[in-house]
Amino acid sequence: MELILKNVKKKDYPVLKSLAKSLGFEIEEKIDKPYNPEFVKEILEAAKEVRDGKGIKMTMEELDALWK
């Protein structure tokens, strides 16, 4: 049987971990990373390029034409 605990507070985690260990349960920690590191790197580089003036400006009509 599997038991999944979500949104455990940091202060409660050691207590739960100790209890599980004393009862002989297997503990599997899974820390979700919300974003792919490569994706984050690309976004940060693009933002830097815009700040450095390497971006282009487009009108709403030009943007609308891209979708068609």
Rank of each mutant, 00 (worst) to 15 (best):
G24C: 05
N36C: 14
G53I: 08
P34H: 15
W67A: 03
S18M: 06
L3M: 10
K10V: 05
D64R: 15
I43T: 10
Y13T: 01
D32Q: 07
D12E: 08
G53P: 00
G24W: 11
G55F: 10
L5P: 00
M1E: 15
N36T: 14
K54T: 01
M58N: 02
E61S: 09
P37H: 06
E2M: 11
E28I: 15
Y35C: 09
D52H: 10
D52A: 14
I31N: 01
E42R: 15
A46P: 04
L23P: 02
S22K: 10
I56C: 08
V40A: 08
A20P: 00
K33S: 06
W67T: 03
L3A: 07
S18E: 12
I27N: 02
N7T: 01
K48M: 11
K48D: 09
F39D: 07
V40I: 14
A20L: 10
D32F: 09
Y35P: 03
V15R: 05
A47D: 12
I43K: 13
E29K: 04
E49R: 15
S22A: 09
P34E: 15
L3K: 07
E42S: 13
L19Q: 09
E45F: 12
P14K: 06
L19E: 11
F25N: 07
K48E: 14
G24T: 07
E28A: 08
K9R: 05
D32Y: 12
E61I: 10
N7Q: 10
E62V: 03
W67F: 10
K9E: 02
I4S: 01
E49I: 11
A47C: 11
W67R: 10
K30P: 00
Y35D: 10
I43N: 11
K33I: 07
N7F: 15
G24I: 07
I4D: 00
V8A: 01
D32L: 11
L63P: 01
I56E: 13
P37S: 07
V40E: 07
E45L: 15
E28T: 13
E26H: 13
I31Q: 02
A65K: 13
D12Y: 06
E29I: 03
S18R: 09
L3P: 00
W67N: 04
L16R: 04
S22C: 09
M1I: 15
M60N: 06
K41T: 08
L66A: 02
I27E: 04
E2L: 12
E45W: 12
N36I: 15
E62H: 02
D12P: 00
S18I: 03
M60E: 08
E45N: 09
L44R: 13
W67D: 04
E42M: 12
